[in-house]
Amino acid sequence: MQDRSDPPNPIVIPFPSAPTPPGGGSGRGWKDLRARVLSALVIVPLAALCVWAGGVAYAVMIVLAMVGMASEWGRMFALSARSWRGVLYLIWPLACAAAALGGQWGGAFMVMGAAFVFGPALWAGQVAIGCAGVSLLWLRFMTHPGAGVVLFVVACVALSDTGAYLTGRAIGGPKLAPRISPAKTWSGSCGGLLAAVAGGAVIASVLPDALAGAGVRGAMMGAVMAVAAQAGDLGESALKRARGVKDSGAIIPGHGGLLDRFDGLLVAAPLAALISLGAAAGAAFWYVGLR
C-alpha cells in the first residue's frame, strides 16, 4: 500500500444497485438481519454498561472507538498502519482525547487542527472523529444526567438506523440518494425519523429530573438527531463510493467497520454537544433555551 494520503489515481468501484425485488426492499433483502441482531446483542449491553459506569470504562470505550475509526479512515486513503505516519495517525486521537479528559477542551480542538500535517483528506478524518469523540466525552461528563444524555443521542441514532433499515426493506419505494447509496429509500428515511422521534420522547420523559414538556422537547430533538444521523450515514456512503470501497472495515458482522456502524454519531454527537451550550448550565441539551 502506498504511504500517502491522496493517491493520484484512486480506483472507483461503481457498485451498481441490484434490481428491486417484489415488496420493495433492496437487493440484499433481509439476509444480513441475523448478523446485525447478533452483533447488537453483544455491542449494546457492553456499550450501555460503559455509558452507565462512566469514568475510566467510558473513557476507554470512546478512545478505542476513536482509534479504530481513525485506522479505518486512514486505510481508505492508503495509509499503512505499519508506517511511521500510520502509527502517528493512530496516536493523534489519543492526544485529542487526553486533552479533553484533562479538561482542556480547547486544547483538544487544537490537536485536531494540527492534524493538517497529514494532508487535507486525512486531516478531515481526524476532525470528524475527534469532534464526535470529544462531544461524547463532553455530553457524559459535563451535562446532567450525563449517562442519560449519551443514551438519548446513541438511542436516537440507533433507532433512526434501525427504523430506516426495517421500513426501507419492508416498504421500499423511491430511492433517497441512488447515486450515493442505492439501498436507501425515502420510506426508510421517514421510518427512521419516526422511530427516533418516538424514542426521544420516551427517553426524555423517563430520565431523572425531567422537566415539564420533556416529552415534546425530546421528540423534537429526536427528529434533529435522526436528520443528523442520516446526514452522517449519507456522507460516509459518499466517501466510500469516492474511495472505491464497499465497507470501511469488517470488525462488526452485518455492519462492516466502526465507521459504517457509527457514521451517524459523527454528526449527531457534535450537534448535540453544540446545542447543549444553549441550555442551562449542565442541563440536557433538549432543554436548550431554558436558563
Score class of each variant (00 low, 15 high):
residue 1 M to P: 14
residue 3 D to W: 03
residue 5 S to I: 14
residue 5 S to N: 13
residue 9 N to M: 12
residue 12 V to W: 05
residue 13 I to C: 04
residue 17 S to M: 12
residue 21 P to T: 13
residue 22 P to L: 04
residue 26 S to D: 15
residue 27 G to N: 08
residue 29 G to P: 06
residue 33 L to C: 10
residue 35 A to G: 11
residue 38 L to A: 14
residue 39 S to P: 11
residue 42 V to G: 09
residue 43 I to L: 15
residue 43 I to F: 13
residue 45 P to I: 08
residue 45 P to V: 06
residue 50 C to V: 14
residue 56 V to D: 14
residue 61 M to N: 09
residue 66 M to N: 01
residue 68 G to E: 03
residue 69 M to E: 01
residue 72 E to G: 02
residue 73 W to Q: 00
residue 73 W to K: 01
residue 75 R to P: 06
residue 77 F to L: 11
residue 80 S to A: 11
residue 82 R to V: 13
residue 85 R to D: 13
residue 100 A to H: 04
residue 100 A to S: 10
residue 100 A to N: 04
residue 101 L to C: 07
residue 102 G to N: 10
residue 103 G to A: 06
residue 109 F to G: 14
residue 112 M to P: 12
residue 115 A to R: 00
residue 116 F to N: 00
residue 116 F to S: 11
residue 119 G to I: 09
residue 121 A to V: 15
residue 124 A to N: 01
residue 126 Q to C: 13
residue 130 G to R: 02
residue 135 S to P: 12
residue 135 S to E: 11
residue 135 S to M: 09
residue 137 L to K: 06
residue 141 F to E: 14
residue 142 M to N: 15
residue 144 H to G: 09
residue 145 P to L: 07
residue 147 A to C: 08
residue 148 G to V: 10
residue 149 V to F: 07
residue 149 V to G: 04
residue 150 V to R: 07
residue 160 S to R: 00
residue 162 T to L: 10
residue 165 Y to R: 03
residue 167 T to D: 01
residue 167 T to E: 03
residue 168 G to P: 05
residue 169 R to E: 15
residue 169 R to L: 10
residue 174 P to V: 12
residue 175 K to Q: 15
residue 179 R to E: 15
residue 180 I to G: 12
residue 180 I to W: 03
residue 181 S to P: 12
residue 181 S to C: 09
residue 182 P to K: 07
residue 182 P to V: 10
residue 182 P to F: 07
residue 187 S to M: 09
residue 187 S to A: 15
residue 192 G to T: 08
residue 195 A to Y: 01
residue 198 A to W: 01
residue 199 G to Y: 02
residue 200 G to L: 06
residue 200 G to E: 02
residue 202 V to G: 03
residue 204 A to L: 08
residue 208 P to Q: 03
residue 208 P to Y: 02
residue 209 D to G: 07
residue 214 A to L: 06
residue 224 V to K: 00
residue 224 V to S: 03
residue 226 A to M: 04
residue 233 D to V: 00
residue 235 G to L: 06
residue 237 S to H: 01
residue 242 A to M: 09
residue 242 A to K: 08
residue 242 A to D: 12
residue 244 G to T: 05
residue 246 K to C: 07
residue 246 K to T: 09
residue 248 S to A: 11
residue 248 S to M: 10
residue 250 A to P: 02
residue 251 I to M: 13
residue 253 P to A: 08
residue 254 G to F: 01
residue 255 H to L: 02
residue 255 H to R: 01
residue 264 G to M: 02
residue 268 A to E: 06
residue 271 L to F: 11
residue 290 L to K: 08
